[in-house]
Design a protein around this nucleic acid. Structure first.
Lengths: 218, 218
DNA sequence: AATTATTTTTAGGTTTAACTAAAAATATAA
DNA sequence: TTATATTTTTAGTTAAACCTAAAAATAATT
């Protein structure tokens, strides 16, 4: 069994490994978790002793297979709870992160099995992120950033890269959510800005928006 | 905001006050919470400073109005989650306590408001215990112990006093749950044992059973 | 290659909530 | 009432997870 702090470290390192695709540094963890590098060193040494990750002084860390499994379990719980909050309790997708951050630490295999069933074994959370299965395996999707889509092509929104309330609220105002069809009508070479169509509305978006929206083209 | 430990102390003292109807002793708290009396003294002093209870050395404690409100809030969360686990996830009523013990500490007003709505604002948890409203007010019911029922009277099961898995499983085997009608066909003066009827079945129960089952007669 | 800057670790301290052991207060019994 | 027993508190430790400040290792510049 793991403490709340240990679970948070494992989860954070799991995400950082996915993002950076290489060893995760002490500073990166510290920033992510909003703590000091010295605290990270402490915890990382503890997790190394528990064989959850490999650690060489000054060289960063890497999750072991076991560590990945534990971390994926926490992510699975987080995302299943997010689905519950949005689908069943009708929370807005920008309100659920904090609460799921707490719920992800509830310990009960059976609870998660039943929650998963209750929700119809969803594959994705309300932000479009994949939910690991009970063995920690992630379904990989071939999603692209909207910024990679060419003029006159179109895609379906499947997720966001950034998930700050501000961004999610912007998307909401523009009536963009998971499943929304987006057509690229025009693209400015100079700054990457676009004219897109969502439903019957056409409007301008900056590169910053386009680089934080995932779409599936198929 | 309160720590997990603080919430557990407040909740425990709240329950003990209801049971004993007088000041709650250090030892009673220690036993309930499975900790040492010295640890209780520490925490109780801390909670007294926070004005959650009044404390005089060697004299026990009493919750303040504020303390009662906080404690009732934790109990409300616990019991709402129990309803969720039984009604929505189809857990058995003897499996939910431990999980609710964790869920009761999730911090989010909005979550509980919505959970309550989602469950149809239930008044009682799966064990028949009343759920405090959002202001901490408990609906009082005039329930009696089955052992107080006379021969040839009957009542409807509304709750249990003890809620150990063993007891709940016994009740289950005998097909007794919340709402079950129980008729007292015979009562032995010597040891308090009874012959009761549940559905079409008639059987013998000891005083130990009868003293742990609440029924409503009306 | 030597210096400077950055990153990471070590060493030592703080807080929370537990613990043990001993002292003090209260309650019970002779 | 004195002696004994029980309950409660105090004093001093421990462990987890954080912190600061200083030292050590690594990386970047000149």
């Amino acid at each position: 069994m793991f403490t709340l702090a240990e679970e948070n470290y494992l989860k954070t390192i799991f995400h950082l490994e996915h993002d950076s695709m290489c060893e995760v540094t002490t500073n990166a963890i510290a920033e992510s978790i909003e703590t000091k590098p010295s605290s990270v060193t402490d915890m990382v040494q503890k997790l190394a002793e528990k064989k959850m990750l490999t650690y060489k002084r000054y060289k960063g860390v890497q999750l072991t297979e076991e560590g990945k499994k534990v971390a994926a379990g926490v992510v699975r719980k987080h995302r299943l709870w997010e689905v519950f909050l949005v689908e069943k309790l009708h929370f807005h997708w920008d309100e659920v992160h904090e609460i799921a951050e707490q719920l992800e630490h509830i310990q009960s295999e059976e609870l998660i099995t039943r929650l998963d069933q209750f929700l119809g074994s969803p594959d994705f959370d309300p932000h479009g992120d994949p939910i690991p299965d009970k063995h920690g395996v992630l379904k990989r999707t071939e999603k692209k950033l909207l910024s990679e889509i060419e003029k006159n092509e179109q895609g379906v929104c499947v997720g966001v890269k950034e998930s700050s309330p501000e961004f999610l609220q912007y998307l909401d105002k523009k009536k963009i959510s998971i499943g929304t069809k987006i057509s690229v009508l025009g693209k400015e070479f100079f700054d990457g800005s676009m004219i897109i169509q969502v439903g019957t509305e056409q409007f301008f978006i900056s590169i910053k928006i386009a680089e934080n929206l995932y779409v599936q083209t198929s």
